[in-house]
Structure formats: C-alpha cells, structure tokens
Amino acid sequence: MSKDIVRKPVPVDFLDLDGMELWLEEMAAKGLHFQGSGVLFAHFLPGAPAQVRCHAEPTPDKRRDVIPGQAVDCGDLGWSYAGKIGWLAVFRTSDPSAPDFHTDPVAQSYTLERMTRTMTRSTWLLLAVMASLTAFLVWSSLDSSFGPVLRLVGYSSPYTGFVFLLDLVLTLHIVREVWGLCRLRRRLRAGMPISGPPAGGIPASSGRATPSYSVSSPWPKSAEPVPTFWA
C-alpha cells in the first residue's frame, strides 16, 4: 500500500490556505488524492481523476496522529477528513450538493485566532533577536574594546554577512506572511469570505479549477462583503 503513495513537495506556503486548497484540488483533478504528509512531502494516493473541494483548516495541534474535533462529525454534512499538512487539517468532499466547509466568515475567523496569536508571538521574538543581533554587530564594529569579538566577526565576515542577510530575508518573509494572516482574519471577521467555488459544484470555467494559487501570498484573491443584515 505504502509503495503506491506518491510523494510531492508542497509548492504552496503553509499559511496560504486558499492556495493550499487549490493545489490539493488540482492534484485530485490529476488523479492524486491527498492522504497526509511526512516531514518534507505531501502524500497522495493515485486514483481516478476527480473534481473535489478541499478545505484547509488551521488546527491547534500539529501532530499528525491527533485528529481534529470536526473530523468526527463532518461526515454527516458531506465532508471527510483527509489528513494533516503542517498546522492544517485537510477536509474534502466530492459531493456537489454539500455546503461549503465554512458558511460563516465570522465563525471562520475564530479558527485563525490561535494560529495568528502563536505566529505573532514568534514573529515578535524573531524581530527581537534580529534587532539584538544587528545592534551587537554595529556596536562591535564601532567599539574597539570588542577586540576579540571584532576579530572573530572580521575573520568570518563574508559568512557573517551572508548569514545576517539570510536571517534578515527570512524574518521579513515571515513578518509579511503573518501580517497577511492577520489581515485575512480581520477580513473574515468583517464578514468577507475567502474566495472559492460556490457550493454545488466546481464549474470548469471557474477560477477555482484553474491553478492560480500563489506560492507566497496568504491573502485572499478577491473578497466581497457578505450582503447580510446580520454581520
């Protein structure tokens, strides 16, 4: 059984929920059905090409053997749990009449709360480390009493510079991602749904059927406010 599994690197950022869903739907349309993930790769079971809708739901527990609470009952509403990929639990349905996994953007925003809180804390920590490192490097280059440290930094200056630059790029990337996630949560809370196919099917001409996911952007591609009296 396991030798039938096809392993693929994930080309989508783990915080790009919509992009992740689009990629998994595209793989299913090619006959590769998501089964779970390992450390580096997503696992797919080959089968008949199928039009499915996928939903990536942030979960508080990254462990692959911990099944999220919704998995138990989602079958009653036409969805099934497929597996985890990072912090995301993947659900899917091939039933065109099944409702969308989330039908209330405000409720959906609650699922992002824990994730955004954790990511924001980590980002502040990362920024603090980055600022300390920058301050230390500047100070050591300005203050001659830093002799031994300066020699150490000077000795490996090309490497130090490269590592510092790499760290800076990674930090900026993470800050951008987390900012996008927070923005997405704010939009959901304001009643704007993540764009996706309408419940009832995936028209071949819809944007959803086209592999238009971005590799780095966690922001929704378009969002119209929910025309509701309530939200």
């Binding site: 609470g69 009952d73 509403l77 036409g78 659900f91 996994f101 209330d104 409720a107």
Partner: peptide, 15 residues
C-alpha cells in the same frame, strides 16, 4: 435558506 458547513457548525459550538 441558511446552510451550515461542518467547519462553521463546530467552530460556533466551540466558541
């Protein structure tokens, strides 16, 4: 008229 997906239902119950 009001349809609920499983994600919405169980998120609301939890909240």
């Amino acid at each position: 008229r009001v349809r609920m997906g499983p994600g919405t239902l169980y998120t609301i119950l939890g909240k």
